[in-house]
Amino acid sequence: MGTDNNLAAVLESLQPSPGDTGLISADPYLCAQLLGVDGVAVCVLTDGGPGELLWSTGGTGAWLADVQYTLGQGPCLDVAASCAPVFAPDLSRLPPGRWPALLPEVVATGIAAVFCFPLSVGSACLGTLTLHRTVPGPLPDSAMTDAWLVADALSAVLLRGGPQQEAFAAGETSDFYGAVVHQATGMVSVQASVPLAQALLRLRAHAFRHGRTVAEVAEDVTARRLHFRDAENGPETGAGEGTGRP
């Protein structure tokens, strides 16, 4: 009954307790173990923006969210648009036209299967729960059932609000994965005298050209290793420091 105990433990701990700072307090690694996958990630949609990563097993799970944010394509964006699940149990067998920029990078990272569930209430999509695995193949029925339970329970947690959400909205908590990207967006908009939306596009374009994620590029901007001063000539690296990668 180990699986059941894990499911109970994950469900029990999703809702943050008083004193917790995160919006979701369950252990993502336990959740991944329960569902028999290598990583999980929860992204929540904002007004007009792509999903913001709120909860994940880090590493590859966070990278998968980043790279979709950078490239503007992938299962999370499809799920957010359709509010329907997207399952890709064997990425190597997808037609190459599906997520053309994303697919080669994801496969090269060793991810073989991705399962993305909507966190939804009726036809309103709040965000996504993404599972990934390095071994191809469908999600077994029991894991599928449990994944839907977790997704619905997450939707309920996100709907409920509470003090954690207020503190988060007010910027009182520091643990916001996307903070660096939005700070860098603000900085680039001043450096290049462009609106925020265009500044974010510049960051994404730079990341795309250099085979990096927007989070990595944003780190360089906030650390002032990279500047976007001149709108015509593109970004330049700061004096005396590299871009962090060749």
Partner: peptide, 26 residues
């Protein structure tokens, strides 16, 4: 729209704060 907006609003508000931090920093 059932109360769907709660989390979305929290996140959107946070994004705006972080962008403003970046602008002031620069």
């Amino acid at each position: 729209d059932v109360e769907r907006a709660q989390t979305k609003a929290a996140l959107s508000s946070r994004v705006v704060i972080e962008q403003a931090k970046g602008i002031l920093a620069e």
